[in-house]
Design a protein around this nucleic acid. Sequence first.
DNA 1: AAGTGGTCTAGACCACACG
DNA 2: GTGTGGTCTAGACCACTTT
Lengths: 236, 236
Amino acid sequence: MSDQPLYLQLRDQLLEHMTQGALQPGTRLPSERALAETFETTRVTLRQALAQLESEGAIYRSNRRGWFVSAPRLEYDPVKDISFTRYVADQGRAPRTEVVGIELTPAPAHVAQALRLGEVADVYLLRRKRYVDERLVFIERIWLNPIYLPNIDQQPVDALWKLLNEKYGISLNRKQITITPIALIGAIAEALDVNSGCPGLFITRLGQTATGDAIEYDEEYWLHDVLTIRVSTQSL
Amino acid sequence: MSDQPLYLQLRDQLLEHMTQGALQPGTRLPSERALAETFETTRVTLRQALAQLESEGAIYRSNRRGWFVSAPRLEYDPVKDISFTRYVADQGRAPRTEVVGIELTPAPAHVAQALRLGEVADVYLLRRKRYVDERLVFIERIWLNPIYLPNIDQQPVDALWKLLNEKYGISLNRKQITITPIALIGAIAEALDVNSGCPGLFITRLGQTATGDAIEYDEEYWLHDVLTIRVSTQSL
DNA sequence: AAGTGGTCTAGACCACACG
DNA sequence: GTGTGGTCTAGACCACTTT
């Protein structure tokens, strides 16, 4: 068994350490230097083992604050018209939504096309951050069609699903979703408080009514280790 | 601009190098030592830049053979009942399926549950490898319900979709899909010919008929840089 | 002020791929 | 056999977080 590279052996030992110590999700690991000394190796190699566990989703890092034990994955159905908040709560976790801002702005070409607007049309752009158990798990940009959602910028947009249902009488029954595994880099990585190159999931969603009115187009950048996507469908 | 870490500057330069040189997908990059010398840095740092590009899906590595330029992503709809082969061909790429083997074997608990079989039931287990333009892109294990698919092990299982349609008169209209971003490790990484810890996508699919008969349960391990998932659905 | 994670250097050895 | 990628060492400095 010792034909395995050292960093994979370290990975196994760290994992054993974590499960035997019954470390709670969110617990901070000892410092890299301390761990390197414990396992009698270099920081470089120790970091390779940590990176391995990070890519598996067992641990994560925040800024320069250190390494933390991950929580179980969240199940998420991007097709169902149920609020994120309720999803998370139903799984016994604590959701929180932070509204970064909302503004009326010219629609980028791909958004105008998705919402079937003229080229020079304005749309509402809503930016939000989503937390689970106080860990930031994804950021999103939502483009809202002003034709169906007039003056939505003067409404409480932290509970968007509720707002659409109760104030505008809209439910989004038809969805077009794309899911792409990507690396989180640049401004996205910064906003999510992770290192550049950290694996992530890019999810886009076009929400339409049963009659085909394009109401909202959504772009979400997720941390890779927090979710499992679950979709049930029936072909026409 | 030079406040960026060196390895990210190298990333940018390598990317520029690749686009300016108009490197075709599949082209091999110069050796790490040569690149390190070109950019006047260490192999360690140079490798960090390469790893960055790998995590973004711009390049990939195969075994110990070196680094190669990635092809555009494939679009894939795990919901539609269309063969992988046709998907790939429709996008102007060359699909290939390699049947690793098929055997009758006791169903693992989670498979028996998914296919709604008794605990001691046997199922057919089909293993395949899938290629696009001669690059291995995912491996799969398919469990086939022998109640609906008797003696399927004596049929040509490289074109499974065609076989189900034409020989058994079955089309899979209802699907339950899960998609989880994972790390490819151990035997999976080895079978896919990638390094342990390489990011990947784990997709499971339960295929049912319109009347709810559970025909097949599929587990796929994908390389992260080859696909975008696209799903269109309508709520009931 | 002390300690941490993030980055970087300049070497080294090995197993494997390829010619 | 030669060169390659994969792994590892033993240091170092910096910016940032935390005490």
